[in-house]
């Protein structure tokens, strides 16, 4: 049971997965409640383009992908504010163009020696101390930002139009979250992979939402669920020899199904109880009684 913990790469991997899961779970709450789930999907693909460009130009991955991610996040947020375009179309244009650029560069430079499988699907073997440190740093900054700006995030996510009237800088809050999401994707890429980050941004908050009706508790639960999925997923991936990102997402999906079943059973129980409750008498007036 504790055998994999004898390997340094596994310890690094499981810590990174726990941190990445907590981070995506926490950031995901705002993304899901603001109905921006597609942005996580799009931004992760956009950052893949940045990762490829940074490799071709021999720039540090974190620097290249971060600059690219910040630029894409700002472009999406600003474009989405145009009434005639809309958020979904803005994300579609910016991210697919960026992803296509990455693919074009890979196909152009046939002499590519580096495999991008890890960036696409996640690879626990490649997690370094630097990756863990970057994850811990981004998670700490995100927790502090949400703690300090809790009131503003809540108002913006719930009712941004009225929030603006009450002096909440909703535009800045959205930009701030897009930047945090970009940073989350950059640092989680090695563990979860570009194609699976989006799922981890969405699944833990939805599970948390099914369990609680409170924003505060949802933040906490989503972080715990995300982190647990990461740890259990990595542990399982070691034994079943499947990509780490895929295993983490599958663990999350299983938990989602369980939470859904719990909700359905609760609703059924409620319906059955209400069936046995005493019903008030219905006053029936026959049409022939002359009272109509």
């Amino acid at each position: 049971m504790f055998e994999p913990f004898h390997y340094e790469f596994f310890v690094n991997g499981i810590v990174a997965a726990g941190l990445a899961g907590a981070l995506t779970g926490l950031v995901g709450v705002y993304i899901v409640l603001r109905k921006m789930a597609y942005i996580g999907h799009g931004l992760s693909h956009a950052i893949f383009g940045g990762a490829v460009v940074s490799f071709v130009m021999s720039i540090n991955f974190f620097v290249g992908a971060s600059v690219w991610g910040v630029f894409s996040a700002l472009l999406i947020t600003v474009t989405a504010r145009k009434r005639t375009i809309g958020a979904d179309a803005a994300i579609g244009i910016v991210t697919t163009a960026s992803f296509a650029l990455g693919i074009a560069i890979i196909s152009k430079y046939k002499t590519f020696t580096r495999s991008f499988d890890a960036a696409l699907f996640g690879n626990v073997l490649g997690v370094s101390d630097g990756d863990v440190l970057a994850l811990a740093l981004v998670l700490s900054v995100t927790v502090c930002t949400i703690f300090v700006g809790y009131k503003l995030f809540l108002f913006t996510a719930f009712d941004s139009e009225v929030g603006r009237l009450y002096g909440v800088p909703t535009g800045w809050v959205d930009i701030m979250f897009s930047l945090i999401l970009a940073a989350t994707i950059v640092v989680s890429m090695q563990v979860l992979g570009v194609t699976l980050i989006a799922a981890n941004v969405v699944i833990p908050p939805i599970i948390a939402r099914m369990i609680t009706n409170s924003f505060k508790r949802m933040l906490l639960l989503s972080t715990i669920v995300g982190s647990s999925c990461g740890i259990v997923g990595i542990y399982l991936s070691y034994y079943i020899d499947v990509s780490s990102g895929a295993t983490i997402v599958l663990v999350g999906s299983t938990l989602f199904v369980l939470a859904l079943m719990y909700n359905i059973i609760q609703a059924r129980r409620h319906r059955i109880w209400s069936h046995f409750r005493k019903k008030p008498a219905i006053t029936r007036i026959p049409f022939s009684s002359g009272k109509l």
């Binding site: 409640l33 009131k151 002096g167 800088p169 409170s214």
Partner: peptide
């Protein structure tokens, strides 16, 4: 126009109204 599925309590919604007096102060 309200998202009734949003995880928020009555008290939290009412306290949002206090934001006007101190929009940038982080806590209630």
């Amino acid at each position: 126009t309200i998202d009734w599925n949003f995880p928020v309590t009555v008290e939290e919604v009412v306290m949002m109204g206090c934001t006007m007096n101190s929009p940038l102060f982080p806590w209630v």
